[in-house]
Design a protein around this nucleic acid. Structure first.
Lengths: 218, 218
DNA sequence: ACCTTCAAGAGAACGGCATTTCCAATTCGT
DNA sequence: ACGAATTGGAAATGCCGTTCTCTTGAAGGT
C-alpha cells in the first residue's frame, strides 16, 4: 500500500496506522460504490437517494459527504469504474487481433456493446450499464471536463489504434485526434440516436455504426 | 378558429364563447411559453422554476398546471416550438438549392447550425438554443416517443431529400430510413461529442460532420 | 487510571422546488 | 340576479440533497 517501506519501528507503526486508516477509508468508499451499483441495478435508473445509499452501505450521511462532494461525484465515480472495466474488456478484444484495421474494428464493436444500453443488457454478470450510460449524458453536459478525464484511457487507446491503422495505410485521415473524437463519439452515442427511431428493426447496430465510421474516415 | 360556421344565433353565441375561451387559453399558454423562453435566455439554462414562470407570465400556479402536466411538458412544448422554427429555416436553405446532393448538404449544414449550442450562439434575434439542446438529451432519454413525434417533420424532410439524392444517383444506400436516422442523429448530436474534445481547435464543425455523413453513406 | 481531543455516527433540520390542495372570488350561462 | 363551474392566490405537502448539531467512543498523552 505505502510506496516506500519504512525503516524504523516508529515509522513502521505510523505507516501501519496510516495504511489502516487508508484501507478503512477505501473499504468504506467501496461499500458505498457497491451499494450504489446495487440500487442502480434494482431500480434500473440512477434516481436512488443518498439516504438509500448510506442505509445500504451501513454508513452515516455525514460519512458519505466525507468521501464524496455530492451525488454527482458519486455517479462520476461509478462512471469511471465502468469506463475502467470497459477499457479492460476492449483491450482484450483488440489484442485478439493483429491486423490494424481489424483491431480498430474490434475497438468499435466492443465499445458499442458496452455503451448501448438497449442492446445485450444481460450479458455476463455485469452491472446494467443503461442507467449509467443515460446519466453520462447529464454528466457530459455538466461536467464535461471530468467525463473527458475519465474517458482518457479509452481515448488514448483509440488514438493509438487509429495511428497504427494510418501507418499501415488502412485508412487515411488528415487529423488523427479529430478522427479519434469522431469515431469515439459516433460509436458511444449511436444508441442515443436509436432512441429516436420508432421501428426497432431499423435500429443501427454495432456493425453498421462501425462501417459508417470506416467510410466516413476514408 | 371553429371549423364549421354556426348557423343560428344560439350556435353562434356558443361558438363565440368557445372561441373566446379557447383564444384566451391560447394566449395564456403563449404567455407561459414566452416567459419560459425569456427565463431560459436570461439564465442560459433550463433550471428556471415553475414559480418564476408563473410570476413572469402573470399566471397562477394552478393555471399553469391546467395547461401543462408538469415541467417536462412545458420544455417539450418549447422544444417542439424550436423544431418548428428550425424546420422552417432548413426548408428555406434547402429550397435555395436545386441539385439533390446540394440540397442534402444544405439540410445537414443548417440543421447543424441549429443544434450546436456552442457555435454561432448569437445569430439573429433568436432564442439561445443551447439550453434546449441540452435539455433535449434529458427529453430523449425519458420521453423518446414525444421527441420522436416532435422531430417528425424534420425527419420526413430529410427522408425526402435522401430519397431524391438516391434517385439522382448521387448516393447509394441500402435503406433510406436507416440512412436518414444515421444522418439525423450524427448531425444533431455531433455538438455533444465535441464537448468531450479538450482542444477547441479540434472541434468538428458542420462541414466536417457533413462530409463524414456523406462518405459514411457512400 | 484520567483527562483531553478529535474522528465519526445518527439523524434532525434546512432549503429548494415540483406538485396539490383548499378556499374565496369571479365569471358565465340561464 | 342566482347557482354552478372556473380561476386566482397562496399555503401546504412531499421529496431530496446537503448541512448542522449533538453525542459517543476510542486513541494518545501524562
Amino acid at each position: 500500500m505505502s510506496e516506500v517501506a519504512p525503516v524504523g519501528w516508529r515509522e513502521r507503526a505510523v505507516a501501519r496506522s496510516l495504511d489502516a486508516a487508508r484501507s478503512r477509508a477505501e473499504e468504506r468508499v467501496q461499500r458505498i460504490l457497491d451499494a450504489a451499483f446495487e440500487l442502480i441495478d434494482e431500480k434500473g435508473s440512477t434516481d436512488f437517494t443518498i439516504q438509500e445509499v448510506v442505509e445500504r452501505s451501513q454508513q452515516s450521511l455525514r460519512g458519505f459527504y466525507e468521501y464524496f462532494d455530492g451525488k454527482d461525484e458519486l455517479v462520476l465515480a461509478l462512471f469511471e469504474e465502468n469506463v475502467r472495466e470497459a477499457v479492460d474488456d476492449i483491450h482484450r478484444a483488440v489484442d485478439a487481433e493483429t491486423d490494424p484495421l481489424a483491431r480498430l474494428r474490434a475497438f468499435a464493436i466492443t465499445l458499442h456493446e458496452w455503451c448501448d444500453p438497449d442492446e445485450s443488457p444481460r450479458k455476463r454478470g455485469r452491472h446494467s450499464r443503461r442507467p449509467i450510460s443515460e446519466f453520462s449524458l447529464h454528466l457530459a453536459a455538466n461536467h464535461a471536463d471530468r467525463v473527458r478525464a475519465a474517458l482518457g484511457p479509452q481515448t488514448r487507446l483509440l488514438r493509438e489504434l487509429v495511428t497504427d491503422a494510418v501507418a499501415a495505410g488502412a485508412i487515411h485521415v488528415s487529423d488523427v485526434r479529430r478522427a479519434t473524437a469522431l469515431v469515439q463519439q459516433t460509436v458511444m452515442y449511436s444508441w442515443f440516436g436509436n432512441r429516436l427511431v420508432a421501428d426497432p428493426g431499423r435500429r443501427v447496430d454495432a456493425e453498421e455504426t462501425w462501417e459508417f465510421c470506416l467510410h466516413g474516415l476514408a
